[in-house]
Nucleic acid binder design. Structure first.
Length: 562
RNA sequence: UGGGGCGUCGUCAAGCGGUUAAGACACAGGUUUUUGAUGCCUGCAUACGGAGGUUCGAAUCCUCCCGCCCCAGCCA
């Protein structure tokens, strides 16, 4: 999938170069066949999006195919709800897979045959050592391992034992099938890795058909091989496993894809590990996998991110082998850039302050014309009700303003967007000295198109009419973590202490222009001068509209003010 | 003290023996603007982890050193 609008921004990356060279040299008869192989044990996040965009993107770019394959070899952790969410997320991101969805579990028979063939070739054996013993026999980083006493079993014995494992004759953990490679290898993955373990567990797809399940290392490479994948793209930590995959595939003499490793994404102030994210969900620190603060695809979708912005982001961050942490600012930029083009402008007052126009005709209501998107004339216009009683944003008024504050202050003029120029004449306060109302006058000729409409006024405010505006809830989100790299936070061993306690702010007294309550869940808008917001996918109803802050507008004033 | 990787601007990241060392984000300044938004313009690495070496010429090749990441699941 190309980001047409940013084609000039696309730079090369080493994987794209490899693919190009392979096509040029006709290495795979010009084929490009990739796959995205998640384990269905959690929700997909922005880190997966990088891999999805890479794999599906390469296939699209070079006229190939990308399979979606669920790597479901560990029934203890996996569940169909995760496969369903992953299917939805990949599709939402805008990608299409080949004729069907693939599952490693559909290769269990073949994988089992591969194991038999390894046994027959004397390259695998059944080991009776338990997990602890296997660890002890494995040695350490600097010390060679020791052969298992069961390593010398005959082919016939191994075959018999493995069949009995498969037939369910042994309890969990009592036996494993191991590759017979080299217990002294400097690469720990080559020290007779476990190929099959006994797990008397129900599998979400194969049910109770199996009680032995292949390890990832024995399933992944062969699955790629079975699917005739040409480029097996994975993350850096599997670099050490490549010699093992090569060993197995060569022993089996089957199609040998080319594995290429790249650095996974790290995002500042964000945790990208399914394990830790599920911790946030399980411990109730967020409302679920789709909490808008979550870096999951589902969370970002609910927050208001567009598939286009995520794809653009994944293209811009590049692909390399160096570990790196991308700033949130880049992600936010991608969203703003996309939404600036697409989002209709609306007016919403998040923290209302009453403003009365004393010289406006009592009871009069005008329908003012407003453009829906100044950058896109095709988006048309809409009518907004204006009256003598309005709400403006509390932060848009200051009694004792700092220099360069060009919003409303006593005695000064300001323009109301799409409407008139007003002047603050009086400030009403309650007994505690809090400002409760502003009393202003307006210049009737200053309406858009009017004789004094072009008067130069520094500040322009958004507003809504008291009577016609609707009440709404707006949810403001900030980083879930204060630390730039929460994963590196050695101090806080538990997630809780690393959390930003102010990551969610709920504003229940917001007032929005009437058109907004007619929006559909998932609709995205620019609330003028505030940011981009999205009607909540779950909680929005016309009677209780709920909007999520997707991203604020750039705010130079906030910077100056600091 | 084992093995596998990686070190180019604040953050990503091109670069593949001869370039003024791309571009983006961020940042700074200017300008347009009825969003302090957007747009537009300008600036932003004599420098490529360090030290040597090869070469007419090195971020790119060689050597040594330094730093960071990954690996001791019957997880993926």
């Amino acid at each position: 999938m190309k980001n047409e609008n940013n084609s000039d921004l696309i730079t090369s990356n080493f994987i794209r170069e490899i693919v190009k060279q392979d096509i040029a040299s006709n290495k795979w008869e010009g084929r490009v066949f990739t796959r995205f192989p998640p384990e269905p044990n959690g929700f997909l996040h922005i880190g997966h999006a990088k891999s999805i965009c890479l794999n599906f993107g390469l296939a699209t770019e070079f006229g190939g195919t990308c399979n979606l394959r669920f790597d479901d070899t560990n029934p203890i952790k996996e569940d169909d709800i995760y496969v369903q969410s992953m299917i939805e997320d990949v599709r939402w991101l805008g990608f299409e897979w080949g004729d069907k969805i693939h599952y490693t579990s559909e290769y269990f028979d073949q994988l089992c045959d591969f194991a038999m063939s390894l046994i027959k070739g004397g390259s695998a054996y059944v080991d009776d050592l338990n997990a602890n013993e296997i660890r002890e026999y494995r040695g350490t980083l600097t010390k060679a391992g020791i052969d298992s006493p069961f390593r010398g079993r005959s082919v016939a014995e191994n075959l018999g034992l493995f069949v009995r494992m498969k037939n369910g004759e042994f309890p969990d953990g009592t036996k494993v099938l191991r590759a017979k490679i080299d217990m002294a290898s400097a690469n720990l993955n080559m020290r007779d890795p476990v190929l099959y373990r006994i797990l008397n567990t129900h599998h979400h797809r194969t049910g109770d058909t199996w009680c032995i399940y292949p390890m990832y290392d024995f399933a992944h490479g062969q699955s790629d091989s079975i699917e005739k994948i040409t480029h097996s793209i994975c993350t850096l930590e599997f670099e050490d496993h490549r010699p093992l995959y090569d060993w197995i595939i060569d022993k089996l003499g089957i199609h040998h894809p080319q594995q290429i490793e790249f650095a996974r994404l790290n995002l500042a102030h964000t945790l990208l590990s399914k394990r830790k994210l599920s911790g946030l969900v399980d411990e109730g620190h967020v409302s679920g996998w789709d909490d808008p603060r979550m870096p999951t695809i589902a969370g970002m979708r609910r927050r208001g991110y567009t598939p286009e912005s995520i794809r653009d982001f994944c293209e811009r961050i590049g692909v390399a082998k160096a570990n790196s942490t991308v700033e949130i600012a880049l992600l936010e930029h991608c969203l703003r850039e996309d939404l600036n083009k697409k989002a209709l402008r609306m007016m919403a007052v998040l923290r209302p302050l009453k403003l009365t126009i004393t010289n406006y005709p009592e009871g009069q209501v005008e329908e003012l014309n407003a453009d829906n998107n100044p950058g896109d004339p095709a988006s048309g216009t809409r009518a907004i009700p204006f009256s003598g009683e309005l709400y403006i944003e509390q932060e848009d008024f200051m009694e004792d303003p700092p220099k360069k504050f060009f919003r409303l202050t006593p005695g000064k003029e300001v323009r109301l967007k799409h409407a008139y120029i007003i002047k603050c004449e009086d400030v009403v306060k309650d007994s505690n000295g809090n400002v409760t109302e502003l009393r202003c006058t307006y210049d009737p000729d200053s309406k858009t198109g009017g004789p004094t409409a072009s008067r130069k006024i520094k500040g322009t405010l958004h507003w809504v009419s008291v009577r016609q505006s609707k009440k709404a809830e707006v949810r403001i989100f900030k980083h879930l973590f204060l630390n730039e790299n929460p994963a590196d936070d050695k101090e806080s061993t538990d997630l809780k202490s690393a959390l930003n306690t102010k990551s969610l702010e709920i504003l229940k007294e917001c007032r929005v222009e009437p058109a907004l309550v007619e929006s559909k869940p998932g609709d995205r808008f620019q609330f003028l001068r505030m940011g981009y917001f999205c009607s909540d996918l779950k909680d929005f109803t016309p009677s209780t509209p709920v909007f999520n802050l997707a991203v604020t507008l750039r705010d130079t004033w906030a910077k100056i003010n600091k």
